[in-house]
Design a protein around this nucleic acid. Structure first.
Lengths: 116, 116
DNA sequence: CTATCGTGCTTCTGAAATAGAAGCGCGAGG
DNA sequence: CCTCGCGCTTCTATTTCAGAAGCACGATAG
């Protein structure tokens, strides 16, 4: 599994700045979504897949591997996945984005739309 | 240009929830990075490309098109790109992620350089 | 015991996204 | 005129993702 690590070179940056690693990790498809869907508690593989709109199982496995390797997600003895402390903090760090998206929707709605 | 819109169906979700559109948009490679690199003021195409570790110009063009279409970025008369009000708010919403990445680096035990 | 079911996970193939180089048209400066 | 850097486009190779199929395992049922 090749998850980007803070301190090491990542896609688009060789400085090792943690943020760049985070942007690489979370810039991969479904990463943010998986983090989001685990917000309310542990989920099994297939349940998680369904919550993500039946995303590809191969990619889900890959993302989960990366997130586990990055200590953002952990797998419980019963094989379900849950956010670690670090993972919950990441989710918290993401919540402002949720609020922003609301404003985004409003602003795009009130803007001049060609068709209703 | 096919940028995801809040209110419409996006990859992995047909509910139209704004957050899902945001996760789709920002889950595309380099989206977050471009937003981040524009934080301190307008940049031209090539300058922006360089700041993103010489990312592919074709993809940069694509991402810029999507961000402009989403009213997160605007192109000035002198052709440089800058964040709109919405874009600056999105950047603000992203700052907690920067702080989180610091903690992430610490917890992983990897070398952590203080970010700008 | 066998048969069936749901689970986590793997593997495979085609489609889509991205990387990276090359180059075009343009305006500024020499 | 020429050259330069600019925004941007186009092309091809590579990487990543999508989606279907299926395997191994444990629980449950017959």
């Amino acid at each position: 599994m090749t998850a980007p690590k803070p301190g090491g070179p990542v896609r688009g940056s060789t400085t090792g700045r943690p943020l760049m690693a985070a942007l690489d990790l979370f810039g991969r498809r479904w990463s943010l979504r998986v983090l989001w869907e685990l917000r309310e508690g542990p989920l099994g593989f297939r349940a998680l897949q369904q919550r993500c709109g039946n995303m590809s199982s191969s990619v889900l496995r890959q993302r989960l591997g990366e997130l586990v390797e990055s200590r953002i997600v952990a797998q419980l003895p019963d094989t379900t996945y849950e956010l670690t402390g670090l993972g919950r903090e990441a989710y918290e760090a993401l919540r402002p984005l949720g609020r922003w998206s609301q404003r985004w929707a409003e602003e795009l709605g009130t803007a001049a739309e060609p068709e209703a």
